[in-house]
Computed example of a mutant assay.
Amino acid sequence: MLVLGIESSCDETGVAAVEAFGSATPTLLAHALHSQIEMHQAYGGVVPELASRDHIRRVLPLAEQVLEQSGRALADLDVVAYTRGPGLAGALLVGAGVACALGAALNKPVLGVHHLEGHLLSPFLSADPPRFPFVALLVSGGHTQLMRVDGVGRYDLLGETIDDAAGEAFDKSAKLMGLGYPGGPALSKLAQQGRGDAFKLPRPLLHSGNLDFSFAGLKTAVMTQARKLGDELEARKADLAASTEAAIVDVLVKKTLAALDDTALDRVVVAGGVGANRLLRQQLDAACRRRGVRVHYPELHLCTDNGAMIAMAAAMRLQSGQQEATSVYAFDVKPRWPLAQL
């Protein structure tokens, strides 16, 4: 089974091809990605209309590139998958429209994929894929969730953010420090030059007794500290960045360990863009090593939004019988689509 996956939920256009045989883990044949970061930098964030227009320009050349790299032809495709949601409505419509038009032209079925399920299953693309069941820490730009995962489509939500997600806390804190867009990676890079204990910042809900998250208060504390520093901010910016990163990572690690305690599982999967964070990987690896717990991550280049995770999620859903591809080419998208509704 050869699956072409198209991702266009926000500011990356991704296309990939995966091949699946029987019940074996699908294999990534090729993938291509175009990031719009440079285009959006001038505006300090993603401009939805510009994002949609750029997806239109990029998706077909990327699909041609993937097919060439994989040594496959359009006629070899068995399923065309695309991100149905959540995401920016206009951007989602581009990927959905192209996928369904391609499916109709080839007389091949199509499958709409949940973007977060793509992230959740992306570690199966790595050289060290996980095994079910596991605790999943899903930390993307707009989502922070802990889940028990017993199989494809078998997700039990353990806790989630009640306001800002971890990725938003990184980005908003970076903006307060004048670090530009995208803020999260810039803050993490600057943090390597500072001290994580330089400023006492809050760890919201760390002792709440549940597995929910809250990062809005941390962002406010960063803003307050930046104002207190005044003219000293530039000289202390690395310390403030390091202290902010330390607070976010501390909460993520300790809540994940609490989820392991609650579920009695011995395996963790970390997925989403924040999963590439160096400090998070270091501290979670160390904490889990002491407990004899295995931790799995996507490859670093697959932590961001990409077509490979969409193609993989589609292939695994088809393999598991959780969903069937359809030859009905009318489509809709779901800009707001909780994973629990899948």
Rank of each mutant, 00 (worst) to 15 (best):
1 M>E: 12
4 L>I: 05
4 L>S: 05
6 I>E: 06
8 S>V: 01
8 S>L: 03
8 S>C: 11
10 C>W: 07
13 T>N: 06
14 G>F: 01
23 S>W: 00
29 L>T: 09
41 Q>R: 15
45 G>C: 09
47 V>A: 05
59 V>H: 05
60 L>N: 06
61 P>E: 10
62 L>G: 10
63 A>D: 00
64 E>H: 15
67 L>R: 08
68 E>F: 01
69 Q>I: 00
71 G>A: 08
72 R>M: 12
74 L>D: 00
76 D>F: 12
80 V>R: 03
83 T>Y: 02
89 A>C: 07
95 G>K: 06
102 L>C: 14
105 A>I: 00
109 P>E: 05
118 G>R: 05
121 L>Y: 04
141 G>K: 08
143 H>D: 04
147 M>W: 15
150 D>R: 14
153 G>T: 10
155 Y>I: 13
160 E>G: 07
167 G>I: 04
170 F>W: 10
173 S>I: 03
173 S>Q: 01
180 G>S: 02
181 Y>V: 04
187 L>E: 04
197 D>Q: 12
200 K>S: 14
208 S>W: 02
211 L>M: 09
211 L>C: 03
216 A>I: 06
219 K>N: 07
230 G>V: 11
231 D>R: 13
234 E>Q: 14
243 S>D: 13
243 S>N: 12
243 S>K: 10
248 I>T: 02
250 D>R: 14
255 K>N: 06
258 A>W: 02
259 A>D: 05
261 D>T: 14
261 D>H: 12
263 T>N: 03
265 L>K: 05
266 D>A: 13
273 G>M: 07
273 G>W: 10
277 N>M: 08
278 R>N: 10
280 L>E: 04
282 Q>P: 00
299 E>S: 14
301 H>M: 11
305 D>N: 08
315 A>I: 11
317 R>V: 01
322 Q>F: 13
323 Q>S: 12
324 E>P: 00
329 Y>I: 04
